[in-house]
Measured scan of single mutants.
Amino acid sequence: HFTSQQLQELEATFQRNRYPDMSTREEIAVWTNLTEARVRVWFKNRRAKWR
């Protein structure tokens, strides 16, 4: 589960860029205190939901 702060950060990034690269995902991981893998999976799932 994600905190509302984490989701806000993830959503804001998603609005700007639906396909963040590795370095962007790592930055998000640092800001949100999540692993890069969790961030990558979140984006994958979010893109699926967005379609």
Rank of each mutant, 00 (worst) to 15 (best):
28 I>A: 01
7 L>T: 07
14 F>E: 03
18 R>M: 14
5 Q>R: 11
28 I>W: 02
31 W>V: 15
10 L>Y: 01
45 N>R: 12
42 W>I: 00
15 Q>P: 04
49 K>N: 08
22 M>S: 08
34 L>C: 06
3 T>N: 08
33 N>C: 07
12 A>C: 15
36 E>S: 05
13 T>H: 15
35 T>L: 04
19 Y>C: 13
20 P>F: 04
24 T>H: 07
27 E>D: 08
7 L>G: 03
42 W>H: 01
21 D>R: 06
29 A>Y: 03
25 R>E: 02
41 V>A: 14
48 A>F: 07
7 L>S: 05
20 P>R: 01
16 R>A: 09
20 P>T: 01
20 P>S: 03
33 N>P: 01
45 N>W: 15
1 H>Y: 12
23 S>K: 15
50 W>Y: 07
28 I>N: 01
27 E>I: 11
16 R>I: 12
26 E>F: 10
48 A>Y: 09
20 P>L: 02
51 R>Q: 09
29 A>M: 03
21 D>G: 06
1 H>W: 13
32 T>F: 13
8 Q>M: 12
31 W>G: 11
47 R>D: 02
16 R>G: 07
24 T>F: 08
28 I>F: 01
36 E>T: 05
17 N>S: 06
51 R>H: 10
11 E>Y: 04
35 T>K: 03
49 K>M: 10
12 A>H: 09
26 E>Q: 14
50 W>N: 07
3 T>R: 04
19 Y>D: 04
24 T>L: 11
30 V>G: 10
25 R>A: 03
19 Y>E: 03
31 W>R: 15
45 N>V: 11
25 R>V: 09
27 E>P: 01
23 S>V: 12
7 L>P: 00
7 L>C: 10
5 Q>P: 06
20 P>D: 02
48 A>N: 08
49 K>D: 09
33 N>Q: 10
41 V>G: 10
49 K>L: 12
19 Y>V: 05
26 E>V: 13
29 A>H: 01
21 D>F: 02
7 L>N: 07
36 E>V: 05
6 Q>H: 04
14 F>G: 03
12 A>I: 10
32 T>A: 07
46 R>D: 02
34 L>E: 02
48 A>M: 09
2 F>Q: 02
16 R>N: 09
41 V>S: 12
36 E>L: 05
27 E>Q: 14
46 R>E: 07
17 N>I: 09
44 K>R: 11
51 R>P: 06
38 R>F: 13
28 I>T: 02
40 R>I: 04
23 S>L: 12
3 T>P: 02
27 E>K: 13
23 S>T: 11
5 Q>M: 11
14 F>V: 01
13 T>R: 15
41 V>C: 14
17 N>A: 05
37 A>T: 09
27 E>H: 09
15 Q>T: 08
19 Y>G: 01
36 E>K: 04
24 T>R: 08
19 Y>M: 05
9 E>D: 12
10 L>W: 04
10 L>P: 01
16 R>D: 06
22 M>F: 14
27 E>N: 10
43 F>N: 00
16 R>E: 09
1 H>P: 12
4 S>E: 13
49 K>A: 12
31 W>A: 15
20 P>K: 04
13 T>I: 15
38 R>E: 15
2 F>P: 05
15 Q>S: 09
1 H>D: 11
2 F>G: 02
38 R>Q: 15
7 L>F: 05
36 E>W: 03
12 A>Y: 11
24 T>W: 05
24 T>V: 08
5 Q>C: 13
28 I>E: 01
11 E>D: 02
37 A>S: 11
38 R>L: 15
39 V>S: 00
7 L>A: 06
3 T>G: 04
7 L>R: 07
13 T>V: 15
2 F>H: 04
47 R>L: 08
36 E>P: 07
10 L>C: 03
1 H>F: 12
41 V>K: 14
20 P>V: 02
2 F>S: 02
27 E>V: 10
49 K>Q: 12
26 E>R: 14
46 R>K: 05
29 A>R: 01
47 R>H: 03
39 V>R: 00
5 Q>N: 08
7 L>Q: 08
46 R>W: 05
31 W>M: 15
48 A>D: 09
34 L>R: 01
30 V>M: 13
40 R>K: 08
8 Q>S: 10
42 W>K: 00
13 T>M: 15
31 W>I: 15
1 H>R: 12
36 E>H: 04
17 N>D: 07
